[in-house]
Nucleic acid binder design. Structure first.
Length: 335
DNA sequence: AATCAAATAT
DNA sequence: AATATTTGAT
């Protein structure tokens, strides 16, 4: 008794949860929507917040075969998702905003799938290869599922024996007019349609090109819904910054920031390790001057390999066959 | 545990 | 319309 009396306090004190074990009550009482609307996040999650990624100097470059919407929305679209909530358990209560598959994001997806080969292209690996922060496996799985359906349709179109449109090729419009603008925004690598044997694309680097980190700390307060509202937009540099205004529809978009140092899973590829600085990838290979070099490299590779089939070559390069001579010329080869 | 495809929900 | 989520099977 006596002893207890003198010690009860210290015992009680010892059993108190450590500060980091405390679940902030406010978090549990605030609805996810409210939390997002007011930008409330976890106190002990002082992780660098969603700093909307710097919009790269607009490098307007037309992607082949896409109708462009003149109205260039100057949203930022960065490559990261999910804000700070990825990490800890109370995040479970906070539902993350739905992912918006911008043409650029989709392009990354396609690139990843292409480089993995259709066999290895499963949600998890695709997700890892894309290395977009906040991107979840189910995000990818969902997208992949739809993309496969799309491919199936495309395959059905071109492979169908009977049809009149013999020479159509993979560039033909989708059968269902009502279907995805998104998927049309990135060219479907030819071999997606014939899983016949591994592709030579494995030789092509995944272009983990690092871009400069600009400091453009502008939090755009615009509804990213607008970006989604223009599906046919050119895969330009729109940075959709999901911020919260008063969304009538009730859901918010979150910004994507390019993935920071965190995980750098895919440096095994071609990339000489370099600084751990964010792996920032070139979104449009067509636009970057890297594109030219890339194609030339591809040509050289093909030459070295000995496969000089113009159709295959143009397919690999994703250029017109007529342009082949140009590239061949560069390297001094005359077909 | 991951994946997949289909159905369903938001 | 576009994503997410669930379901049931592999």
């Amino acid at each position: 008794m006596r002893e207890d009396d003198s010690n009860w306090f210290s015992r009680w004190e010892e059993e108190l949860p450590a500060p980091h074990e405390l679940m902030p009550l406010s978090q549990t009482l605030i609805t996810p929507d409210l939390a997002m609307a007011f930008d409330i996040r976890n106190p002990h999650l002082n992780t660098s917040q969603q700093i909307p990624q710097p919009p790269p100097p607009s490098n307007p470059l037309p992607s082949p075969g896409n109708p462009t919407h003149p109205n260039s929305v100057d949203f930022a679209d960065s490559a990261e998702l999910g804000s700070g909530i990825g990490g800890d358990e109370p995040a479970r209560t906070l539902k993350r905003p739905r992912l918006v598959w911008t043409p650029q994001l989709h392009k990354r997806f396609v690139d990843a799938v292409a480089h993995l080969g259709i066999k290895n292209a499963v949600p998890k690996t695709i997700m890892q290869l894309m290395s977009v922060d906040g991107l979840t496996r189910e995000n990818v799985a969902s997208h992949l599922q739809k993309y496969r359906l799309y491919l199936k349709r495309m395959q059905g179109l071109s492979a169908g024996g009977g049809g009149g449109g013999g020479g159509g090729g993979p560039l033909a419009a989708s059968a269902d007019p009502a279907t995805d603008h998104l998927f049309a925004s990135s060219p479907v690598p030819p071999h997606f349609l014939n899983p016949t044997r591994p592709n030579s694309d494995h030789f092509l680097p995944f272009v983990p090109v690092q871009t400069l980190q600009h400091h453009h700390h502008h939090q755009q307060h615009m509804a990213a819904a607008a970006a989604a509202a223009h599906p046919q937009l050119q895969p330009q540099y729109h940075r959709q910054v999901g911020q919260f205004g008063s969304p009538p529809n009730g859901h918010f978009e979150h910004p994507f920031l390019t993935r920071q140092p965190q995980a750098q899973p895919l440096h095994r590829m071609g990339a000489p390790m370099h600084n751990p600085v964010a792996a920032n990838y070139v979104e449009d290979m067509e636009s970057a001057n890297a594109a030219g070099a890339r194609k030339v490299v591809a040509v050289i590779l093909m030459l070295l390999i000995g496969t000089l089939e113009s159709r295959l070559l143009s397919a690999v390069l994703q250029i017109q066959e007529s342009q082949l001579s140009c590239f061949c010329g560069i390297i001094g080869y005359v077909p």
